[in-house]
């Protein structure tokens, strides 16, 4: 039996229909996560809302535009704007994805996959170090959902992420649904992935729902977390090596707040069960 872990935190991704609930401070969560880019603006209601929410809750800044895997380098203007927001908000975490989103002159606004090669590892490690130095803080990287794999890959994604943390000092955001979606789409065992994941570096966990496409699972975040994802979450929590912040991520077909809080209660129950199992 290991020593008891510091308390797990439970939060929600804050989306537009629930802004006023968070501004009022009535939502029973330990933290809120927002999409950084929505608040990297000069002024207006979004920023005022975030400032008001920050008075009640720690806020995690979750980005989609770092493009840490871009072969042609990072966008420094983007990083400086993100730093300005982070300096003001004093976030719980600053995170983005292990992916690339753009090439010079073109931005896909999507989280595109990287091959797990030593070339990519060298580049991403260099970019993470550069980003952390501009931001003046550690960043977390999230495992993305993938719809295609690369024959060039030289290692599993969990090994890539473990090496990346060792080399750059970044932390990880483990998205359990993304593991499940990628595993089904690319044909690997999600339980094995969770069993191997470098949990010592995991600061945050995402839980979300997905939908069934024609040939592939699609990471739509438009429905409740499914049972296999809950089981994987419990398996991950059993291996947790530090305090983690767990949250439900819903981006589409956003339900009443109570429904999301209900899902968060399921997460609390599953996390508690994992801790009891670990203690026995």
């Amino acid at each position: 039996m290991r020593e008891a872990l510091p308390m797990t935190q439970f939060g929600l991704g804050m989306r537009h229909p629930h802004y006023s609930d968070f501004v009022a401070g009535h939502v029973p969560v330990d933290f809120a996560e927002v999409i950084s880019e929505n608040f990297m603006v000069a002024g207006g209601k979004p920023l005022a809302t975030l400032r008001a929410v920050r008075e009640h809750y720690p806020v995690a800044l979750h980005g989609v535009s770092l493009s840490v895997g871009s072969a042609t380098g990072l966008d420094l203007d983007y990083l400086h704007r993100l730093r300005a927001l982070a300096d003001e908000i004093d976030p719980l975490f600053v995170s983005d994805h292990l992916c690339w989103t753009r090439v010079p002159g073109f931005s896909s606004h999507d989280l595109l996959p990287l091959p797990c090669t030593s070339e990519a590892l060298d580049l991403v490690a260099r970019h993470v170090s550069q980003a952390q130095s501009v931001l003046g803080r550690q960043i977390l990287l999230e495992n993305p959902s993938a719809y295609l794999g690369f024959a060039q890959s030289e290692m599993p994604e969990w090994a890539f992420l473990a090496a990346l943390c060792e080399r750059s000092g970044c932390g990880l955001l483990l998205d359990i649904n993304n593991v499940y979606v990628s595993a089904r789409n690319l044909g690997f065992d999600p339980a094995e992935y969770i069993a191997q994941f470098p949990m010592a570096h995991v600061h945050q966990i995402h839980l979300a729902g997905h939908s069934e496409g024609e040939a592939l699972l699609i990471d739509t975040h438009d429905r409740a977390v499914c049972d296999p994802v809950w089981d994987l979450f419990e398996a991950a929590m059993l291996r947790a090596e530090r305090s983690v912040a767990v949250m439900i991520e819903r981006d589409d077909a956003i339900p009443a707040l109570n429904e999301l809080l209900g899902e968060l209660d399921v997460a609390r129950g599953r996390a508690a069960r994992a801790q009891r199992a670990d203690a026995s």
Binding site: S108, H109, D110, L112, A146, Y147, L148, G149, A151, N185, G213, E214, A215, L216, I218
Partner: peptide, 21 residues
């Protein structure tokens, strides 16, 4: 460039890109 097996995935990325815009 990505091979035949990547085609369904590429279609997903293309659809997501266009739908989002």
């Amino acid at each position: 460039h990505f091979g035949e097996s990547a085609r369904p995935g590429l279609e997903v990325y293309l659809n997501t890109y266009r739908m989002q815009l």
